[in-house]
């Protein structure tokens, strides 16, 4: 056959036809290569089941319960490249622990209203999916409270929503009365971009009444010696005292002093004064502290709580003080600094 065929020289038209065949093959190959990157749903589902474990399994529904309507997606329109990997889930105060288990104890006392979650992913990149948790905390203060009280120590500030930071694989932010945690499956840049895109889209698409008024009080803390990311808004049972709520706390480390300062704006000066008395009573009567003699350069009272020192004073509507200072002298120093900061607020 070879000997027979070798004699012929192809005509130009034949070469053209052969070239057309090869071009068609190349086109097909190109299409195949692009299409193989768009994963089959079977592959996507299997990969998700592998990464997300049993989370994709059907939720146990009580027998005979009427089928609950499917909650809407977290966003009505998805940013380019982002797509939901599953239906949205919705949790009420009664069912919150089904989703986040024991951590519900942190959200429930802070006024938790509802949680919506959804798994989101990038087109064509199954490794970089993330899950968005949108907590409706009812009030901006309460959103800030759960935000601040869980803030990780190593963070990178970001500028989305009212308050936000990125820590390792998660992006956390406060937007009005919403607290969002966007937890990615890995720490890759793609996942980071995806969470940023979702956060921006969520903030843009969700109108809220504005940032918390209380958060500006956090700015009153002295700057010097402040441990980064240590400002928190505690909602209830602050320092174990059941009447003390809605208190900003901040940790300080400066020249060998280690103290916690606290600050709370009350409804009136009278309430602040009454609460200060009650707190003193709690520290002395209930915890067995010893009140130190009053001193001219110490506002309010100073209490020796068994080797650590607590102080409390009021300034107008503010209740403020130090908590667990390592020495009486340090407690005095920081009480004075805090008083200055609170009574002469910066413009």
């Amino acid at each position: 056959m070879a000997t027979l065929s070798s004699r012929r020289r192809p005509k130009p038209r034949e070469t053209l036809a052969a070239a057309a065949v090869l071009c068609a093959i190349l086109t097909l190959a190109a299409w195949l290569l692009t299409t193989q990157a768009r994963f089959s749903p079977a592959v996507t589902i299997a990969s998700l089941a592998a990464t997300a474990g049993s989370a994709l399994a059907p939720a146990a529904e009580p027998a005979g319960a009427p089928a609950s309507p499917r909650p809407p997606d977290l966003l009505a329109a998805w940013p380019a490249g982002l797509r939901p990997l599953g239906p949205a889930e919705q949790f009420s105060p009664e069912t919150l622990s089904d989703k986040i288990d024991g951590k519900a104890e942190l959200y429930l006392p802070a006024g938790f209203v509802g949680l919506r979650c959804q798994r989101l992913g990038l087109d064509g990149n199954l490794q970089s999916w993330f899950e968005a948790y949108v907590y409706d905390m009812g009030q901006p203060d309460q959103a800030y409270s759960v935000y601040s009280s869980q803030k990780r120590s190593v963070t990178q500030e970001t500028a989305v929503g009212d308050f936000s930071y990125r820590a390792a694989n998660q992006l956390c932010l406060v937007h009005g009365h919403f607290y969002l945690e966007l937890i990615a499956a890995d720490e890759g840049a793609a996942a980071g971009r995806a969470t940023d895109a979702f956060a921006a889209a969520f903030v843009a698409a969700t109108p809220v009444t504005g940032p918390t008024a209380a958060a500006r009080d956090a700015a009153l803390f002295p700057r010097e010696g402040l441990v980064p990311n240590s400002v928190m808004l505690l909602s209830t049972d602050v320092f174990g005292f059941d009447r003390l709520n809605h208190v900003f706390v901040a940790r300080y480390r400066h020249n060998g002093d280690e103290v916690t300062l606290f600050l709370s704006r009350r409804a009136s000066a009278a309430e602040a004064a009454e609460l200060a008395t009650a707190l003193r009573g709690f520290l002395v009567d209930d915890l067995g502290g010893r009140e130190l003699p009053a001193s001219a350069n110490v506002p309010g009272v100073l209490i020796d709580a068994g080797g650590v020192y607590d102080g409390v004073f009021t300034s107008g509507r503010f209740l403020a003080g130090v908590h667990e200072a390592t020495s009486a002298a340090a407690a005095e120093r920081w009480l004075a600094r805090l008083q200055t900061a609170v009574t002469a607020p910066p413009p």
């Binding site: 195949l32 193989q36 990157a37 089959s40 079977a42 592959v43």
Partner: peptide, 12 residues
């Protein structure tokens, strides 16, 4: 089923 280079991915 899988996303490895020699697995299904999106191959038709």
């Amino acid at each position: 089923v899988g996303t490895g280079w020699s697995q299904w991915r999106g191959w038709p």
